[in-house]
Design a binder for these strands. Structure first.
Lengths: 155, 155
DNA sequence: CGAGTGAGTTGCTTGAAGCAACCTAATGTG
DNA sequence: CACATTAGGTTGCTTCAAGCAACTCACTCG
């Protein structure tokens, strides 16, 4: 992306994309949402270049989507957590996930499933529990990877 | 974006972003959804470079998100329409719109509002009508620009 | 007959992203 | 003790996407 803004666009979709529309950004948010909190962990999970990850994390902290907290001193080490604003991206992620699920061929079913923590029901692409009908938020749901049966080789 | 794919990611969010995560792409979809159909119209509305718009439209047609239809011959002129797959992006757009609305300062309220065609009620960021409670799709809703009162100057 | 329109394409420039190597401070290993 | 490893980055170089302006082609309009 040459620049990350969309000048002249007075629309919240454009405003949202100015922040989370950059390459890797939404995947970083997804990863932090599913429990990846540390630099190297994110880097390995995503395969993103380290300088790019560094830039994205800084921007996400500036934009109050992530929070950087030390988890030890000497040497100082940090973890990243979602703020309320970051957690609030959950409906958009779930919607994109749903679209991707519907329009990608998955012979064995989609690789990531989302469930309502409280009742265990599956969550629709609108972020609504299909069992109990409740409209959910990030904290109410839990994502489960299905396609992770990596043949015990390498790594 | 150096490349538009995210190798090694088996997740529908990544799959979705491989297609609609490129710069300008979701804004093009948004514009077509709100009635912009022609090349120059999209170019003027977005301010995107013409070669980039051209590349995006080709990719969106290849990916079966847009359809290119002639509306006259000699000279041949074309319009772009959303396919079902394209219309199906509506929930994701509405979710991003909602997030942008909630986290952008708008002294005069958000610049784009979405209403349920049938009952006229406002639509939530989950794509649900807040008046009648119905879960909506692209065809059920209508977007209204509010902030378009450009002071009658230039252009 | 020149200007304008619509839908692009071409060529050049800029800068974001990919990649590898490096840094610093501490811990673990033979 | 030397050496390797871990964590969280930074630096420098290269490549390719995006911005920009100019051009094309086929037609219409005044």
């Amino acid at each position: 992306m040459l620049r990350h803004d969309y000048p002249g666009q007075s629309c919240s979709i454009a405003k949202a994309l100015e922040v989370v529309g950059e390459r890797w950004t939404l995947l970083i948010v997804r990863d932090v949402m599913t429990g990846h909190r540390r630099f190297d962990e994110l880097q390995r999970s995503l395969g993103v270049a380290r300088n790019v990850l560094s830039a994205r994390l800084q921007r996400l902290v500036e934009e109050d989507i992530l929070e950087r907290r030390p988890y030890q001193e000497s040497p100082e080490r940090y973890e990243y957590f979602l703020t309320e604003k970051g957690l609030d991206l959950w409906p958009a992620l779930v919607a994109l996930l749903g679209w991707g699920d519907r329009h990608t061929e998955y012979p064995e079913g989609p690789p990531l499933l989302v469930f309502h923590k409280e009742c265990g029901g599956p969550v629709s692409d609108r972020g609504v529990c299909e069992r109990c009908g409740e409209t959910l938020n990030a904290r109410d749901a839990r994502a489960v990877r299905v396609g992770d049966e990596v043949p015990a080789a390498g790594r």
